[in-house]
Amino acid sequence: MELVTKDRNTIDPLEAIETHNNTATLAINPLESEAIYIFREVVAQFEKPVLLFSGGKDSITLVRLAQKAFYPSKIPFPLLHIDTGHNFPETIAFRDKLVKELGVELIVRYVQDSIDQGKVIEEKGKYASRNSLQTTTLLDALEEFKFDAAIGGARRDEEKARAKERIFSVRDDFGQWDEKNQRPELFDHLNGKISLGQNVRVFPISNWTELDVWSYIAKEKIEIPSIYFAHTRKTFVRDGMIWSADDAVYREEDEVVEERLVRFRTVGDMSCTAAVLSDAVTLEKVVEEIRASTISERGARIDDKRSEAAMEKRKQQGYF
């Protein structure tokens, strides 16, 4: 699906500067400016940062912001993808293309390996998901590479527990979040000092809303995986939500598969990410749809519906 224009990644930097030689005043986008500031603080304050890349729109936005923060240098840290094995194939193809264009290092660690090593046990049955299993694989990867800062695309508007998250969020040796004992964050004075064994989760787009992300993607003409746009897909309906009829998604015999015109609002593990009916085939239409929407983005995430404090519990255990 050719929906977006040529990506800026492929433009020769020198050519770009000459053709964009403006004589104007730089217009400020306060959220973008804040995110770039945070990226630079991470690289300056930590020895080995890494960007957690899921292939979703938020992490793709992070990549563009990182490009902006360090230009004309390349992005000075690798991307880490925790692969649940239940990815949308479109996302993986997109990921590999992006990494190649940017010339950055991609590290992939597999939840399947954690299962095979007996570190986690796969959930079974109707609502089985590998989403919470990711935490173990993530913590192991952070330890393996001695990453001291993991940059993520979580936003405070997503969920109530995330609304209390800091920009620099300190985690202990076990990756745990001590929500009642968080460091105060004042002005732009970001404190990244940590003790041995601790690491930090960093959230540069904390203050963005879902609509902010989409508006930015549209304005910047950032390429995103095709599953974010309306497409015909084999699906079935359970508990009022639309699920992709793939092998990775458990399906009862009486759950009927039908082709529907759908798109995804978040790109997580296939087994816990529901689709929405949509005919939005362009970024402009997607932005319009989000603006008019009355259901929150995580309303389509079954993992949050397990209990009212589902996210808080996962975060205490090291989920990002």
Binding site: N21, N22, T25, Y37, Q67, Y71
Partner: peptide, 19 residues
């Protein structure tokens, strides 16, 4: 020079993260 990503500007206002 004042850079913002791959563009150059003559002037940048307060609040902008530039190079």
């Amino acid at each position: 020079e004042i850079y913002f990503f791959d563009q150059k500007f003559d002037k940048a206002g307060r609040g902008s993260s530039c190079t």
